[in-house]
Write a protein that binds this DNA or RNA. Sequence first.
DNA 1: CTCTGATGGCTAC
DNA 2: TAGCCCTCAGAGT
Length: 338
Amino acid sequence: MPEGHAIHRHGRILTALFGGDAVAASSPQGRFAEGAALLDGLRAGRAHAWGKHLFWPFLSTSEQAAAGGIPTVELGDPQATWLHIHLGLYGKWAFAGPGVAGLHGAGIRVSPTEDSGMRKTIDGGQDGTTRLVEAPTGGRDGLPEDNIQVLGELATTPTTRLRLAGPEAVAQLTGPARCEILSGEEVLGVIARLGPDPIRNEEGDRQRFVAGARRRKIPAGQVVMDQAVVAGPGNIYRADCLWRTGISPLRPANKVSESRYRELWDDLVLCMGRDVDSGIIVTIPPEFQPDPIPEGDPELSRFAVYHRTGRPCVRCGAIIREELMAGRRLFWCPGCQR
DNA sequence: CTCTGATGGCTAC
DNA sequence: TAGCCCTCAGAGT
C-alpha cells in the first residue's frame, strides 16, 4: 500500500537494476501478455515517478547503439515505449539477483538497517527462480513498508503480472491497479490530471498547491488526498502532516490560510523526500518518539496520529479521534489541530 | 477454514 | 455515495 515516496523509490531501484540494459519481459499471469511482448528485448531508460504513478521509458536497442550509461528520456518523449504502473492498494514489487547488492552503492537502502542480513549472492536460475542477494531483515520495524520484497527465491506465481529479467536482476510485479503500455502523448495526458508532487518539488509547485487547495470547499483532509491538488500523499502523510502543521482535517479547505498551506507543502516535501531513501514512513518528530521503542507495534514509534485512535496525543494529551472521510479512515487530534 | 481490511482510485447511479 | 477492481496477511471460527 504505497504512497508517493515508495513509487519514487521504486523508480530509483528499477533504474539502478535495469537502466541501460535490454530486458526480457513476460507476464506469467497472462494479463499483461501483450504489453510484456512489446517490452521484451527493449532497453530500459531512467524511470520517472509522479505522485503514485510510475512512468518508465523503454527504447529499442537499435536506437541505442551508443550504449554506455542509462538513457535519460524526457517525460512523454514520443520515441519511447512507456510502461505505466499504478500499484493501487495491493501492488508489490519483488527483486532478486546480484544487482540488488549494488543498490547500497547507488544510495538506496533496501533494508532499513545498513549492512544487516547480507548474504552471499547465488544466482540460481534454473526453473525460473533466482536466489537471494540480501535477506529482508527489515531492521527495527521488520516491515517491508514500501511494498518491496527482496526474496530468497523469486519464483513466479499465478499472480505475477510482469516479470522483468536483466543481466543483473529480476523484478516481479503483482497486484497493480494499472500496468499498461502508453505512448508519450498518453503519459502527458495522465500527468495533466495530477497536481504537483512534493517529491519533485519543481519551480512554482508550492504556489500551485496553495492555490489549488484554497479553491476547494471540501474539508482540508480530503484535499490532501486529492491527487489533482497534490500528487503523492496517501492516508498516512495526510493524517500525520496535517497534525505536524496543526491543521484540522475537518476545516473547510478554503478556510485554511495560504501561509499554513505553505507550511504543509514544505512539510510534505520534507517528510516524503526523506522517506524515499528508506522506504519507511516516519512522521513522528524525534522528541515525541517513545523511548524505549515499544515491542510488537512498530507503528507507535513512527506515526503521531495515524492508527492511534483513543490514545493521548503525544503533543497535547487530547485523545486521538477517528472518523470515516470519503471512505477512508481519518485520524486527528482535536486538541492541537485547528 | 472463512472473513476482513489495507499506505488507492475508477466508474456508475 | 456505493460498488468494484487488484492481492494477501492476519484475525477469527
